[in-house]
Amino acid sequence: MEGLILFIGVIGNIISVLMFLAPVGTFWRIVKHRSTEDFESLPYVCTFLNSFLWTYYGIIRPNGGFLVATVNGFGVVVEIIYLILFLVYAPAKMRAKTAILIGTLDVGFLAAAILATWLALQGETRIAALGIICAGLNIMMYGSPLVAMKTVITTKSVEYMPFFLSFFFFLNGGVWTLYAWLIRDVFLGVIIPIPLFF
């Protein structure tokens, strides 16, 4: 059983890495055109916050958390690069909006969540509280492609919703649901399937 859990977790990590790298084409386009055009920063702000908290969750969770922490740690690094590129090439109004989102969610909320769970809670209670926060944030993260869908509808073009990002979100949800079931982690299992419905 341990071998199966490791195998599914490694497959989940590979798919998650592909999901994190799916927007590379978008950012190549942003750098090439030196403009963020009609792209929104919210999905990347939310993904950074989500990845950072799942990394923390994976570190404090005793069994099965290592694979969750490693892939989300990779995601944190990738999202930092995306956010820096977005801030460099965004027009002034979008740059200000993005900076406010980063300050509010990626600094303020993140610091509050980590401090509250670290200082006020211990053991299984800390893990459960952080799991609830992470699960709730997954709703926001998996809802953030709706911003891209709005752009697709208003521009009548699918160029703002990359196929591979949607595809890897779908695969990611399925594999991590199976992993959560195998390691009996309700927080991974309750919310991760959301992309299966997009």
Rank of each mutant, 00 (worst) to 15 (best):
I80R: 10
A135K: 10
V107H: 06
A112M: 02
I80C: 15
I81M: 11
L121E: 04
E79S: 11
E79I: 02
I100Q: 10
A96M: 05
I127A: 05
M140L: 15
I139G: 15
R61F: 14
F109N: 09
V158T: 15
Y160A: 09
A148F: 11
A148C: 13
Y142S: 08
L87I: 11
M94Y: 09
L119F: 10
M149L: 15
A99M: 10
V158Y: 06
W118L: 11
K150T: 14
T98N: 05
V68H: 00
V77W: 10
G143W: 12
A148V: 00
L121Y: 01
V88D: 00
Y142N: 11
F163N: 02
V158I: 13
V88H: 12
T125V: 14
A113C: 01
S144K: 04
L115E: 06
A128N: 13
I102G: 02
K93D: 02
T155V: 01
I132Q: 05
A112T: 01
T70G: 11
V71W: 15
A120V: 13
N72R: 14
T70M: 12
S157R: 08
A148W: 13
G143T: 08
K93S: 10
V68K: 14
L101M: 15
Y142R: 09
S157L: 07
A96T: 14
L67A: 13
E124K: 11
A92T: 13
K93I: 09
P145R: 12
Y89I: 04
A99Y: 00
L83N: 04
C134I: 02
C134N: 13
Q122Y: 04
F163M: 07
K150C: 08
A129M: 08
L101F: 10
V88N: 01
Q122S: 13
F169D: 15
E159L: 08
F66R: 08
I133L: 14
F167Y: 10
F66G: 07
R61S: 14
A120C: 14
E124N: 15
Y89C: 02
T55M: 15
Y56S: 10
E79R: 09
V68W: 01
A96Y: 06
P62G: 10
T117S: 13
I84M: 07
A92R: 12
I139K: 09
V78Q: 06
K156P: 00
W118E: 10
V78I: 15
V152Q: 08
Y89S: 11
W54T: 07
G143R: 02
L110N: 10
P162F: 02
G131C: 09
K150W: 14
G58E: 05
F74Q: 04
Y160Q: 05
P62I: 12
I84S: 03
F109L: 14
A69L: 13
P91G: 01
K97V: 03
G64P: 08
